[in-house]
Design a protein around this nucleic acid. Structure first.
Length: 291
DNA sequence: CAAGTGCCTTTATC
DNA sequence: AGATAAAGGCACT
């Protein structure tokens, strides 16, 4: 199946899948292969033509954020030359609508890890606990269900390379399996309430909560603050935050909770209701810059 | 090539 | 309240 992208609907498949918001996609030849919930499908982009197999039109449009009005979003977040430069470079990068459960586990695993290592951990989890799902002559696995992860041992998680995150994933999986926590229900809440609920989970702090909200709960105002975004703010937005805060955060590796909240609030106030889009463009721009 | 640093941080403990 | 340390191990330089 195909979708033709109009000029008013910019999309860049490579930027969208390479910017570090999702970790389980795999490019083979010019096709991207992905597993979303129970479904394996492939997709490729040639210019303004988006071609895919084994998925329907509506799903693709929703999952890849093609229903977001990007020109409108750009006009709202283009507050200065730095964000404008990032947008110019990666125009068409979109926020995905990931499966909330997979997104939650992904970002619990992602704490204090680099992206290649995160990909490896999640692949290990899928291979060990997911269901086989062959497609196009390749072997794929679905992301493990809450029930399957709730039954897994800590040792098995450690074997997947999770390290100290093993107990967080285990306890969170148990809560979801037992119905104490339902990631899908977060969509019914507003930003503050959904964030508060996420923070009750072990291994979920402010950063992880904001990532889950942005990448799977359609809270486009969420503004995750990691080391890269901290760097961007120090470099380009120092005059927008108190100098005391800049001094505090500049020479420390990690940031305290209160500092996180201040930087997060800056992002949301400064960029507005689509701050999450601004975050992802700035993040990807900063990470791909050669230093 | 070895060793050091960094990693889309959270939690426990002062 | 606020600072500090500890927690896998992989990837990159």
């Amino acid at each position: 199946m195909k979708i033709w992208l109009s000029p008013s609907c910019p999309f860049n498949l490579d930027s969208t899948l390479c910017c570090g918001q999702v970790f389980t996609w795999d490019k083979r030849g010019d096709w991207w292969y992905g597993v979303v919930e129970e479904n394996v499908f492939k997709i490729r982009q040639v210019g303004d033509e988006l071609e895919f197999e084994n998925a329907d039109d509506g799903f693709v449009k929703n999952y890849f954020g093609l229903l977001d009005n990007l020109p409108r979003i750009f006009s709202q977040i283009s507050k200065d030359k730095h964000i404008k430069r990032a947008i110019e470079k990666f125009k068409g990068l979109r926020i995905l609508r990931q499966d909330p459960w997979e997104c939650l586990i992904s970002y619990i695993c992602a704490t204090y890890k680099n992206i290649p290592a995160i990909k490896q951990m999640l692949l290990n989890l899928s291979k060990k606990f997911g269901d086989k799902s062959p497609f196009d002559g390749y072997s794929f696995q679905t992301f493990p269900t809450p029930t399957r992860l709730a039954k897994a041992s800590l040792k098995e998680f450690v074997e997947c390379g999770l390290g100290y995150r093993a107990k967080y994933v285990s306890e969170t999986a148990k809560k979801v399996h037992e119905g104490i926590f339902n990631p899908g229900n977060l969509k019914r809440r507003n930003y503050e309430k959904a964030r508060h609920e996420l923070l009750t989970l072990p291994g979920v702090g402010l950063k992880v909560a904001d990532c889950v909200l942005l990448f799977s709960i359609e809270q486009l105002e969420a503004f995750p603050v990691d080391v890269w975004i901290k760097r961007v703010i120090l470099k380009h937005y120092a005059n927008h935050v108190p100098t005391a805060l800049i001094r505090k955060t500049s020479d420390k590796k990690s940031i305290a909770k209160s500092e996180y909240e201040k930087l997060n609030l800056f992002g949301r106030k400064y960029f507005g209701e689509y701050a999450g889009y601004a975050q992802e463009y700035l993040y990807h721009h900063e990470r791909t810059q050669s230093h």
